[in-house]
Design a protein around this nucleic acid. Structure first.
Length: 155
DNA sequence: GCCAACGTTGGC
DNA sequence: GCCAACGTTGGC
């Protein structure tokens, strides 16, 4: 089993949306970056655990955990010309982008803020805390995962 | 709202 | 295949 961190803008899809429908798979669509797509397509597998990270918002940080319940399949939004994720160059025969399905696991007891993550020596290799990094789907090592989980324990 | 850093596009 | 211009990301 592998560990991941997925970024999301909470206005669009937040951990509370997951928590509200804990048994419903959520379609993780709209990834439009090749490096992120390749992780989704080639490495994200059923059963993997995912940190849900809130970006571009007031409270930035890791908000909760989800689990992969369906591996990569063609992202339906690329074919929908009413979607902001529509891609005119994608066809049914040659889809460009993939989605996975996630299901709620838990909310962090409190949000793990970005500035806190930046201060941890164990995480210096994590793309999230590297200057200028914009990767929206990134692998998390087991050691990094455990470090972050330790932060979520009540004080 | 600003802007640094990055990824993508397209002309050559 | 280079690289300038452009658009986007995302923290501040």
């Amino acid at each position: 089993m592998n560990y991941w961190l997925f970024k999301t803008e909470p206005d669009e899809c937040s951990i509370d949306d997951f928590a509200r429908a804990p048994t419903t798979p959520i379609v993780w669509e709209g990834v439009r970056n090749y490096q992120a797509r390749n992780f989704l397509r080639d490495n994200v597998a059923i059963g993997d655990q995912v940190f849900i990270y809130h970006s571009s918002c007031k409270d930035i940080g890791i908000a909760g955990i989800a689990r992969v319940v369906k591996a990569a399949y063609p992202d339906p939004s690329q074919f929908d010309n009413h979607s902001r994720y529509f891609d005119s160059k994608a066809t049914g025969q040659k889809p460009r982008w993939v989605a996975v399905d996630l299901q709620f696991v838990s909310k962090m007891s409190q949000l793990i803020r970005l500035d806190k993550l930046k201060n941890l020596a164990t995480l210096i290799e994590l793309p999230l805390v590297r200057k200028g990094n914009r990767l929206s789907v990134m692998p998390v090592t087991c050691a990094q995962w455990l470090t972050i989980m330790a932060l979520s324990q009540p004080a």
